[in-house]
Design a protein around this nucleic acid. Structure first.
Lengths: 227, 227
DNA sequence: GAATTCCGAAAAATCGATTTTTTTAAAAAC
DNA sequence: GTTTTTAAAAAAATCGATTTTTCGGAATTC
């Protein structure tokens, strides 16, 4: 792990509590792979690293464990979940299923405002594509694009689960060795998804989204070592 | 709210931390509706009620908020989520979808051990049916039956989300006025589900599970007041 | 020689007190 | 008469210290 995440990409602007700030910072650092998989977290060093006291830090760790980004064992602290191939497959398969479900509903409920937001998110993503040096900007734009695609689905709980799976998935993907050829194909699919969304071609869009996640899944598998 | 949950139905036997104990107790009390919907939790009185210090109590509250059984607003504490009809509908619809998905996989992967556990769980549920005075015993047997039905689905993340939705759903159902006629129909459906599971009749089973949840959904709607 | 027991150090969990922020209600201003 | 300001009280959040439990290695036993 490296330097503290002073101002993360999606951190609350201000007025937040220390617990919320360290929660967001830790969450981003976990997804970005700044801790080794399976590593046991040393609370003492986290305290100095994130510059917070014990109480807010422990509250943040408890939240992250409930969210699934940490494993908690009762009298022996917190550890970063290991990267397991079977778990990644589970996450990716379920992500495909849930996102296709949400996509169908999003197409049905989507209005002009949704279309506009989707176009805007796609434009931001393309602009971020042009600056490969700022990985974090691209990652944020990418996340927001996928959110915008499903935003109009109308089911808060479905979106919640998809977000959770996305965070899990990204931890694997971001730890995997980069694959430039695939990256371009993925980028092209984003544009095609927008096109299909505008025309409400649900079946083609579902197939493409499934392929999109499958392609990313293949890349992410590179993060796993053993079984 | 009433007396403290000294030994909840599913509390860890021992060796648990104070935070884990109060988490389990609070979780059960929230699902059982021992707090008013929308109520703001007074941390001071929770401390005396559950006989724990501030730190483990706050850690438990943070976990419950991350799980979705509490709402947390940054500088103003924790409150019990209100009961909203549109949210219940969302929970019930998604529960149907996810459980039918899991059921299909459970039928495909289910082996003799799964069948045995399902029969055992069903038997326990029928025995609990005979003692209507012990509501908690029936509730536990019922929860375990539904777990056993989907246990062999093979997707830990799907089961996790289903469990979470089930807890959300039960909070509504248990606050709704009882409906004796429906109760008998629901009980009969459990037996039919076992029968269909043994014979792997997936389509009929999916339809029945969907109907089962829909029926319960109708009852649970009685818990909501406004829109 | 392998397994077990017994320390001492390290880490996790908890407690009690302090600080910060919000809420409430009264007083003042317009 | 309504709104704004102010001050006190209450509640939330945080800190530092204490207690409890686990971990690792040396000494002991079988």
């Amino acid at each position: 792990m490296s330097t503290p995440n002073v101002s993360g990409t999606a951190s609350p602007p201000s007025g937040a509590t220390a617990a919320s700030r360290v929660f967001e910072a830790l969450k981003q650092d976990l997804i970005r792979g700044r801790f080794a998989a399976g590593e046991k977290l040393a609370i003492g060093s986290l305290k100095t690293h994130y510059q917070v006291g014990l109480s807010p830090l422990r509250e943040a760790l408890n939240r992250l464990a409930a969210y699934g980004l940490l494993e908690q064992v009762n009298q022996r602290g917190f550890r970063v979940p290991p990267l397991r191939l079977d778990e990644l497959d589970d996450i990716a398969d379920l992500r495909s299923q849930l996102e296709c479900m949400a996509l169908t509903q999003a197409f049905q409920n989507g209005d002009a405002e949704w279309e506009s937001q989707l176009l805007a998110a796609h434009h931001r993503l393309r602009r971020a594509d042009e600056r490969p040096e700022d990985v974090e900007a691209w990652e944020q734009a990418h996340l927001r694009f996928h959110r915008a695609l499903l935003a109009s689905c109308g089911s808060p709980w479905l979106l919640r689960f998809i977000e959770q799976l996305h965070d899990q998935f990204d931890r694997y993907r971001r730890l995997a060795p980069p694959n430039p050829g695939v990256r371009e194909r993925l980028d092209r699919q984003h544009g095609e998804l927008v096109q299909l969304a505008m025309e409400r071609r649900i079946e083609q869009a579902r197939a493409l989204l499934d392929e999109h996640i499958g392609l990313s899944h293949g890349v992410a598998r590179g993060a796993c070592s053993a079984p």
